[in-house]
Design a protein around this nucleic acid. Sequence first.
DNA 1: ATATATATGTCAAGCGGTTGATATAAAAAC
DNA 2: GTTTTTATATCAACCGCTTGACATATATAT
Lengths: 325, 325
Amino acid sequence: MATIKDVAEKVGVSVTTVSRVLNNRGYLSEDLKRRVHEAMKELNYQPNELARSLFRKKSNIIGLIIPDISHPFFGEFAKHVEEQAYKNRYKILLCNSQLDNKKELDYISMLKASQVDGIIMGSHTLDTEEFTSINLPLVTLDRQLSDSIPYVSADHYKGGVLATKLLIRKGCRKIAHISGNLKLHLLAKTRYDGFMDTIKKAGIPHVVVETDLNGFKYHEYEQIVADLFRDHPDVDGVFASSDVIAAQVLKECRRLGKKVPDDVKVIGFDGIKLGEFITPELSTIQQPIKEIAKTSVKLLIDQINGKEVQRENILPVKLLEKETT
Amino acid sequence: MATIKDVAEKVGVSVTTVSRVLNNRGYLSEDLKRRVHEAMKELNYQPNELARSLFRKKSNIIGLIIPDISHPFFGEFAKHVEEQAYKNRYKILLCNSQLDNKKELDYISMLKASQVDGIIMGSHTLDTEEFTSINLPLVTLDRQLSDSIPYVSADHYKGGVLATKLLIRKGCRKIAHISGNLKLHLLAKTRYDGFMDTIKKAGIPHVVVETDLNGFKYHEYEQIVADLFRDHPDVDGVFASSDVIAAQVLKECRRLGKKVPDDVKVIGFDGIKLGEFITPELSTIQQPIKEIAKTSVKLLIDQINGKEVQRENILPVKLLEKETT
DNA sequence: ATATATATGTCAAGCGGTTGATATAAAAAC
DNA sequence: GTTTTTATATCAACCGCTTGACATATATAT
């Protein structure tokens, strides 16, 4: 790889001068600029970002920590994060934690050592204290940590309410909620709150089951859903806390010969693109994934640039009523 | 952030000594090591990877360029790439090209400037010449470029043959193949070859449609599938080149009142995890995604370490017969 | 004729590390 | 008692790039 020194020698000037051309600083004659750029082209020169970052104390890299990139929600989230980052000339260091506490910690320290300019945290197995020591611009997804760390989240509570109300309105007599794990202290937990508040007020029989902590192991869903219908065969409405789980519910219904939406009504959560391919088309609560990603990146970059940012960022959800309710 | 100098001062030795402890070089007394490590702990010191990489001319970063991280195939691929990279202490710089030629080129130059140690290319809008100038360890996914660049791919031809044979065996009289775009020169194209060779030999009426170049725009699938059944209402077997497209076929069949598998038999390709959630369960040709990822990372790291690697790496596919055939 | 602004360019230090060469002292070998 | 080995630690150069300070020359203003 050619270095700035090679370019300087080729043109017959000092490296300082080349650097000045590179960064457009000071007075440079057009002729000089031309000569330098020509030499760069010829040598196929590219400035070494490592060296630049080292000097500038700015890497233009954002760390993205999520539980599972192959999960559609996080896949879409990551895609939009990348898009926004790219627009702002930031690169993404991808960290897949698999909800493994050790890996998450390890990644945080790797990211710090790599001098990333900030971190978007979408995986949350850590305690608050471990976070406050990160000492780097931070944005969390779906989790409220300390006073100083901004977070972005969909309005899960509202989503829980909307979903539950829909099932009630459609005449369900016994409604099940398959919740994500409640021990993770995620804001997604408020879907559960929305469900409970609504269903209690309506006085309708209900049952809640919770998924494990093991992080998106799909085969687990099968068991949970099967158990649910075994233990509660009279359930005629299901509010699943993700579209993937909802799809599993549809599958189980088919296996049991229950017709959707006639015998059982089902509503999911997330509004992932792939949901459109499910038959019958899945009713769901749509999170504004792109907006969430956009906001996360913006909050992070604003922090990096020393701006004050808003702590709470709750974005609206939307009820998408399709064929399963 | 504390630097090596801070540590040195605190312990009362030179930075060289601290560096030696850090890298375990030369003779160090146990006592010294202890004192240095203590000071690091206290100062919350972490070596600056930028500086280390600069000196070592090795960043321990791998660039991963794919068309769309939110597409299930690439999501799963990326997940496994990350897993393997992590095991080998490499970090992943995520590049989502959206099959945009300009973005792809831009990312390649960003990656070079960032001094990545190698690139895994899963997005292919570039010509061969543009690649040979990359001058960095490289592995391509599904594309055969030059003699010197190793590639990893599933045995798409075999997959095409298996899928077609299954549809024939099940008694289909007119079979459609919805192919990925054939202009991209991907090895995935050989699914088409496998289909054509097999169906011609069997002498069965068939029709082939091709998706656009626009890169995983799902809404496009809807039109293509609708057109297919409009123009060829007598099609009773469909070999789709991805599970996502196959799902769209199922959806359209339902809309048209065609029963699957009675009226129309459908088989997909990829074997994505989410395929299991489709009802009826989708028959498909499963790519060994994890193995593909593992091989890609291994080939890349071997190259980085100066080893000779095998150019052609074709991994076996597997027919998964479920409910749609 | 002198001060001031404009233009062109270089020196050298520094970003945070690593390492070959080198110095010094004590222990072991001859 | 001298040489060799082992142990401990430092100096200074370097990785590739940036920038404040400084030097010099020309054009413009006073």
